[in-house]
Simulated scan of single mutants.
Amino acid sequence: MTTKVAFLGLGAMGAPMAVRLVRAGYDVVVWNRTAARAEPLTTLGATAAATPAEAVAGAEVVVTMLSDPAAVTAVAEAVAPALRPDAVLVEMSTIGPDGTRHVRELIPASVGMVDAPVMGSVDRAASGALAVLAGGTPRDLARVADLLAVFGTVTECGGPGAGSARKLVLISGIVAGVTVVGETLALAERLGLDDPRAVLEASPLSGLAARLFADGVDFSAEMAGKDLRLAGEVLDLPVMAAARQVLESAPDQDADLGAAVRAVNQKR
């Protein structure tokens, strides 16, 4: 029988991920706070629900892909009474280990939970090339292994919360690194180097430089700043705090991380 999946959150990342589940043959019910975002999914065969609780009714797997801890908490509170006792909640948002633990406390003990945030942007979400960082009990991980593989390469990171922890570590380093490389580019331009971008791309900074100029991605300055805030709640991290201040000064908070960093440095 086809597995029924509730997918909650159809933002820049959630929408292409939900599309992949529909095309993989899952029985998908979708919900989004802005209902119009569900319409393209219904043309592909998904069912749209009016509320999160309606979406999860009868679902064997529930996937959440939302913006921040507050949004995930609100949805978890809304769906908790409606979850099947044997369902598995797959939390794929970036909310950190503390946020993951809070969600675990909100849902019934009989419901399984896997934290599986992802690395990669909308281009990789659409092509199924995300890096999925999964944490959970062996039983829960096994139950959703095939579903997670639809999104990309799955790395089992350890017990509950391990995926969220690894994601926070990696994304914080990348966001801060891109911010610093943006300033490095500004320094190179001020010093009059020929083709500063090429200089960076031919150096050990090439990976971060590539992300600074990446096309077809959508990881906003606002969301990048949120991730650094979550890291700062775990530990006092002065460099990351400074990077967050840079991102918060970006004129367009909806702009992709790389574009936002370049825009800040163009004003120097």
Rank of each mutant, 00 (worst) to 15 (best):
T184F: 11
W31V: 07
I174K: 09
A231V: 11
T137Y: 03
A198G: 15
L208K: 07
M119A: 14
R104M: 15
P16A: 09
V144T: 10
A15C: 01
G182A: 10
E233R: 14
A46N: 04
V180L: 15
L168F: 07
E60L: 01
V22G: 01
A76G: 00
A6M: 05
G14R: 05
L147A: 06
G9R: 09
V61L: 14
A165T: 15
R244L: 04
G9A: 09
V28R: 00
R104E: 15
V178E: 00
S249W: 13
E183K: 08
R229F: 02
G11D: 03
L257I: 09
G216N: 06
L66V: 05
A76E: 03
D218Y: 12
A36E: 06
V5L: 09
P160F: 03
G14A: 09
L208V: 08
V79M: 10
V261C: 01
A134I: 06
N265D: 04
S164R: 09
S203A: 12
L41K: 14
L168T: 14
V19Y: 02
T47R: 15
A125W: 03
P85Q: 06
V239W: 07
P160V: 00
I174F: 13
A176C: 15
L185Y: 09
A188F: 14
T43H: 15
G128F: 14
L147N: 00
G9Q: 13
S164Y: 09
V114Q: 06
M223E: 03
I107A: 01
M17K: 00
V111L: 14
V122G: 01
A57G: 11
A55C: 12
L170N: 15
S127W: 07
V62A: 00
M223H: 09
S67A: 12
A12Q: 05
A134R: 04
D218V: 00
A188I: 14
A71D: 13
D227P: 02
A263K: 10
L230Y: 02
G136N: 08
L89D: 06
V181H: 11
D236Y: 08
L230S: 02
A221K: 04
S206Y: 05
G112Q: 11
S127D: 14
V246G: 00
G232F: 13
V29R: 15
M13N: 02
A82E: 07
T179K: 06
A186Y: 04
A145P: 01
V178I: 15
G128D: 04
G99W: 09
K226S: 01
E183W: 06
V63T: 03
E54W: 06
A35I: 08
M13V: 04
Q266L: 14
L168E: 07
A259C: 10
T2L: 12
P204A: 14
V62E: 01
T51K: 09
L10K: 12
P138C: 11
I171L: 02
G11I: 01
L147G: 05
V199N: 13
A149P: 04
L89Y: 07
T94L: 02
P196D: 04
D194F: 10
G58R: 10
V72M: 01
P238F: 14
A188Y: 11
R33Q: 11
A241D: 06
D252Q: 11
A165G: 12
V239Y: 09
T42W: 13
V103S: 04
V29P: 11
D236L: 07
A126T: 15
A145V: 00
A6S: 07
G11E: 05
G128N: 07
L212Q: 06
L187H: 02
